[in-house]
Simulated assay, not measured.
Amino acid sequence: MEKPLVSIITPSFNSEKFITETIQSVQNQTYKNWEMIIVDDCSTDQTVSIVEEITKKDSRIHLFKLIKNSGTGIARSTALAQASGKFIAFLDADDLWKPEKLDKQLDFMKVNKLPFTFSFYDCINEGGNPLNKRIEAPLDLSYQQLFFCNYIGNLTGIYEANYFGKIAVSPIRKRQDWIQWLTVLKKIKTAQPVPESLAFYRIRENSISASKMELVKHNFAVYRTHHHLNLISATLCMVGFLFTQLILKPRYSKTIKASI
Rank of each mutant, 00 (worst) to 15 (best):
Q105G: 07
S43H: 06
A210S: 10
K212M: 08
L155R: 13
P4C: 08
V216C: 01
T72F: 01
Q27M: 12
S207I: 00
P138G: 02
T183G: 01
P11S: 00
F120T: 13
N69Q: 06
T190D: 04
L155P: 12
S142A: 02
I260K: 14
A221Q: 11
Y223E: 00
L131E: 03
N154M: 07
T255V: 13
I37D: 06
V6E: 00
T225R: 11
S25L: 12
V6P: 02
Q245E: 10
T47R: 01
A199L: 05
F18K: 14
S259M: 03
M109K: 00
Q82S: 10
V239R: 15
T55S: 03
V169G: 02
E136V: 08
P195W: 03
I135V: 12
E35F: 05
L155I: 15
E21I: 15
N125P: 15
K257G: 04
R173F: 05
M213H: 13
S142T: 10
D92T: 07
Y159H: 12
M1I: 00
A210P: 10
I37E: 07
I74F: 02
V51T: 09
E21S: 15
L141D: 05
I19E: 00
K3N: 14
A83H: 02
W178S: 01
V48G: 11
I203P: 00
I256F: 01
E196C: 09
T78G: 02
K166M: 15
H226C: 10
L141I: 09
L102H: 03
F220N: 10
L131K: 11
